[in-house]
């Protein structure tokens, strides 16, 4: 299953730990908020993504499965994991 990384923009406070831990695919904008640069996290980087998720001081990173065909009833992208 393909995984993707998402930032909860409400929870994020720009601590920047994720960009230090996963510079391969997380950059910071000029205010220090993360930009996820990959739509899909490759399998070999999933461990790195998990680490960034676990280390986030705000629990603002979400690693989730990419659902190619979400049912219409399901709301897209809740903040709960």
């Amino acid at each position: 299953m393909e995984m993707r990384l998402r930032v909860d923009p409400v929870a994020c406070d720009g601590f920047g730990h994720c960009a230090e831990l996963a510079p391969e695919f997380i950059a910071l904008d000029e205010w220090g908020y993360p930009i996820i640069q990959l739509d899909v996290i490759p399998r070999e980087l999933e461990r790195v993504a998990e680490m960034a998720v676990n280390q986030c001081p705000r629990k603002a990173l979400i690693l989730e499965k990419v659902d190619r065909n979400p049912p219409a009833s399901r709301r897209r992208g809740g903040t709960k994991r």
Partner: peptide, 14 residues
């Protein structure tokens, strides 16, 4: 600054 290119990224309004 560019935003995450993924169009499904939800945008919080409040």
């Amino acid at each position: 600054p560019s935003l995450p290119s993924n169009p499904t990224t939800p945008i919080a309004t409040t």
